[in-house]
Simulated scan of single mutants.
Amino acid sequence: MRTLVRYCVTTVTVTVLTLTLGAALASANPNAINPIPGLNGVNGVPQLGGRARAVAQQTGILSQNRTQDLNVLGTDLGIMWDNGRGEILTAFGDTAGLGLPNLLSGSLWAWRSNVLFRSTDRDLSNGMDFSSAVTDAFGQAKELIPSPKIPFVEISRIPTAGIAVGDTQYLSAMSVKNWGPAGTWETNYSGLIFSNDNGENWAPAPETVRPSEGGNRNFQMSAFLKRDGFVYQYGTPPGRGGLVHLARVPEAQIRDLGAYEYWDGGAWVRDVNAARPLMGDGVAELSVQWNDYLGQFLMLTTDAHNSVVMRRASSVTGPWSPPEVIVDTRELPSAYGAYIHPWSSGPDLYFLTTVHQNYNVLLMHTTLHR
């Protein structure tokens, strides 16, 4: 990735780091983190013995992408989608960098809620190279949609799913009201934001807001899938461990909540309150894609033990298979999120997973078996 500005890890960083380490012990706030290699107990890509291997670190100081040059020392998630123009867009969540600390929000780092990188890399065997990023006038990775960072008002605005419809890019984002104990948080609402210039500038679509109540609470976090002219939205409540519900809408009507239908376990209905869970197990951060090699839909999530698991189905509605453990939490205990790379092909499945201990994102690989 072409460097636009360079930030050095200086004594200022060490000072902030010291404070952050202390904060991490007392807080479940995901922004009380430590992205500095070595000092956070991590130095290098983890060596795993299970079904998946870590290919490369995608973000942070140890990344070949040198995201620190855009003031991204640490970040999480990694929502990927094909923009329809030969690029993969990747939206990351809460992002730590150098600058004025946001003490009110509980972060001792300069903090953005969402940033975006682009990639044209089709050879993922040695990592995913970023070709460009959305940046501000100072050459830093720019926050796409700002939030006030005020606890119990809006502490963050975090992307959970992305998709292209025509020439418009869409992100589903949740407005986080406050952080609770680890794995729990409360939202104000979720809704779409959109860009007509390949992610450079974003605006909210207020007509798509889903308050965190009633049936809409089941769609505070999402995964998108395009199929047969529809956009399918797999949703969960805020936090980790919620049940998955399913909605669909014709692509051209993605911003019309009145056009959405919901799966009630046997049919598509208009009432969001009639949606029924697709499976009995709760999940965390999910992604869903059709896989040509298997001829099945794949769903990646983490489970109640924080292991990355995969489910399969022949239909968008399921039934979904029992979970297969891809990354055991005992091998990578602070991992979360599992987002499928849209250009995975054949038996090679690539996905992004965050490691909280060093608060950066890994590109992972597993081999699919028919």
Score class of each variant (00 low, 15 high):
residue 214 G to Y: 04
residue 205 A to S: 15
residue 297 F to N: 06
residue 40 N to L: 04
residue 365 H to Q: 09
residue 183 G to M: 05
residue 86 G to K: 11
residue 53 R to Q: 13
residue 135 T to G: 01
residue 286 L to D: 02
residue 316 V to M: 07
residue 72 V to F: 01
residue 59 T to H: 03
residue 73 L to G: 00
residue 196 N to H: 13
residue 3 T to R: 12
residue 182 A to R: 13
residue 171 L to Q: 06
residue 250 P to D: 04
residue 8 C to H: 14
residue 44 G to Y: 10
residue 151 P to I: 06
residue 90 T to W: 00
residue 261 E to Q: 15
residue 181 P to D: 10
residue 314 S to P: 00
residue 300 L to D: 11
residue 330 R to S: 14
residue 156 S to P: 04
residue 68 Q to N: 12
residue 186 E to R: 12
residue 236 T to Q: 13
residue 212 S to Q: 12
residue 238 P to H: 11
residue 252 A to I: 10
residue 335 A to N: 15
residue 313 A to M: 07
residue 231 V to S: 03
residue 73 L to T: 05
residue 180 G to R: 13
residue 250 P to R: 11
residue 177 K to R: 15
residue 310 M to T: 03
residue 64 Q to F: 08
residue 113 S to H: 08
residue 319 P to L: 02
residue 191 G to R: 04
residue 177 K to V: 01
residue 357 Q to C: 00
residue 22 G to S: 05
residue 39 L to Q: 07
residue 1 M to K: 13
residue 96 A to L: 12
residue 260 Y to Q: 10
residue 323 P to Q: 12
residue 365 H to N: 03
residue 202 W to L: 01
residue 308 V to L: 14
residue 20 T to E: 15
residue 85 R to H: 14
residue 16 V to C: 01
residue 73 L to R: 04
residue 205 A to Y: 11
residue 26 A to F: 15
residue 241 G to N: 04
residue 40 N to I: 07
residue 306 N to L: 04
residue 26 A to W: 14
residue 168 T to R: 14
residue 292 D to L: 02
residue 160 T to I: 02
residue 196 N to L: 09
residue 317 T to H: 03
residue 172 S to D: 15
residue 225 L to D: 09
residue 278 L to A: 09
residue 51 R to M: 09
residue 67 T to M: 07
residue 80 M to V: 10
residue 240 R to N: 11
residue 217 R to W: 02
residue 288 V to Q: 11
residue 211 P to M: 00
residue 84 G to R: 06
residue 149 K to I: 01
residue 76 D to I: 02
residue 281 D to S: 13
residue 54 A to N: 03
residue 256 D to Q: 14
residue 199 G to L: 00
residue 100 L to P: 01
residue 281 D to A: 13
residue 42 V to K: 08
residue 265 G to V: 06
residue 86 G to F: 11
residue 49 G to E: 10
residue 68 Q to L: 08
residue 83 N to Y: 01
residue 252 A to V: 11
residue 34 N to Y: 05
residue 207 E to R: 09
residue 353 T to E: 02
residue 298 L to H: 05
residue 106 G to N: 03
residue 170 Y to H: 06
residue 329 T to K: 13
residue 359 Y to Q: 07
residue 271 D to M: 09
residue 352 L to A: 11
